[in-house]
Amino acid sequence: MVNLHCTLHTDKNQKEITRHGSVLFPVACYEDDMACTDVPIHWHDEFEYILAFNGTIHLHVGTEPITLRQGAGILINAGLLHSVSHSLRKPSILRSLVVHPDLIAGSPQSCYWQKLVLPFYGRQNLPFLLMEGNEPWHATIAHLMMHAWDAITQETEAYTIEARYALSKALHILCQNLPSSPPTISRDVSLLERMKLLLQYIEQHYMETISNQTLMRLAACSESVLLRSFKKTVGTSPMNYLQNYRIQQASSLLLSTDMTSSEIAIATGFHDISYFTKIFHRTTGLAPQRFRAAHRTK
């Protein structure tokens, strides 16, 4: 079945620890309304196909800001930090498939691994492949990926076989059209390690008072380096990232607990209740209690 929203759980290195699919069928489908949420920065061992199903999707892949117009897609390679931004209440629906290569190829010794997986999955110089619709095969890839998405989410008869075939066909076409000069992405190890440290700290201490100076001391860097690191990897400033992370946690508490708005504000680092309400409304389009009423499952 489809997961309407991918709830992320990451380890201290921002590696996602959520299982996508099952051991027997390692693929998961997601549909997210980016007008209501965002997808925090993370990485995983699977490759991921993202389609802008409706509206415009704004991503950060490694250090690259990427915009997907409706109908455009991107295939993100394994091990790459990526995130998707909130879209300020504009219609913005993404559909994604997170696929472990074992589903397609089984053993690395198989011909399927060599022909369908390795040409993309094994290339360090090919972090992602953008498919904006300017080539006929881009639409074919999108069609096959959504065919697999539909089969899995609707659990059609023999959907595991049907989805595996569609995914294999899509990878076959993709491997036939790999660019000779793929997009490059920064492999600044020091930047990535710095960001993992800072993001882990924010995740563990977001309810406390955090400033740029706090993060500068933690990472032993100047303010200009701090700001540049956040801009290159998550597309915003440290304080904007912290604020958005607090709103994510507040949204989760509104939907999963009976805590009052005031209690949630304090628990998520907002010690001014009116400011919390203002920022929450600006981010989600709804006041906290209206958000709870609109989205909470009874």
Results as ranks from 00 to 15, higher is better:
Gln248Tyr: 13
Ile161Met: 09
Gln124Met: 05
Leu59Arg: 06
Ala220Ile: 06
Asn77Tyr: 07
Asn3Gly: 09
Ile185Met: 15
Gly285Tyr: 10
Ile57Gly: 06
Val61Asp: 07
Ser251Phe: 05
Gly133Ile: 04
Ser186Leu: 09
Thr297Pro: 00
Leu192Gln: 15
His58Phe: 11
Thr18Phe: 07
Ile266Arg: 12
Ser237Lys: 03
Leu253Lys: 13
Ala170Pro: 07
Gln249Leu: 10
Ile210Met: 05
Arg194Ser: 15
Asp258Gly: 00
Ile50Ser: 12
Ile264Pro: 05
Ile279Trp: 00
Ala293His: 09
Glu16Val: 10
Gln243His: 01
Cys221Thr: 13
Gly269Thr: 08
Pro101Asn: 04
Met131Asn: 08
Ile41Gln: 09
Val84Trp: 03
Ala250Val: 01
His147Lys: 14
Lys196Ala: 11
Lys232Val: 01
Ser237His: 04
Ala170Arg: 04
Ile74Pro: 02
Pro101Ile: 05
Leu199Asp: 04
Tyr275Gly: 00
Leu178Ala: 06
Asn54Ile: 03
Ile93Thr: 08
Phe291Ser: 02
Ala52Lys: 07
His9Cys: 02
Tyr165Met: 10
Ala142Ile: 13
His42Ser: 08
Glu157Asp: 11
Pro26Met: 10
Ser256Lys: 15
Arg246Cys: 03
Glu223Pro: 00
Val117Pro: 00
Thr37Met: 10
Ser229Met: 01
Asp272Gln: 05
Val234Ala: 04
Trp137Gly: 09
Leu171Ala: 08
Tyr245Thr: 09
Gln14Phe: 08
Thr277Tyr: 04
Asn212Tyr: 02
Asn125His: 12
Ser83Leu: 12
Gly55Val: 03
Arg69Trp: 10
His172Lys: 13
Leu178Asn: 06
Met1Trp: 02
Asn13Leu: 11
Ala72Arg: 11
Thr10Trp: 00
Phe291Leu: 07
Pro40His: 03
His205Pro: 00
His205Thr: 02
Glu132Tyr: 04
Ala294Leu: 06
Ser252Pro: 00
Pro238Thr: 01
Ser261Ala: 14
Thr284Lys: 14
Leu253Val: 02
Ile161Leu: 13
Leu198Gly: 05
His100Arg: 08
Ser83Arg: 14
Val225Glu: 11
Glu48Ile: 13
His9Leu: 11
Ile141Cys: 11
Met207Ile: 01
Ile173Met: 07
Leu218Arg: 07
Thr67Lys: 14
Ile66Arg: 04
Arg246Gln: 14
Ser256Arg: 15
Ser261Pro: 00
Lys90Leu: 07
Phe270Tyr: 15
Leu226Phe: 03
Asn3His: 15
Lys169Ile: 06
His60Ile: 08
Leu242Phe: 06
Gly285Phe: 04
His42Glu: 06
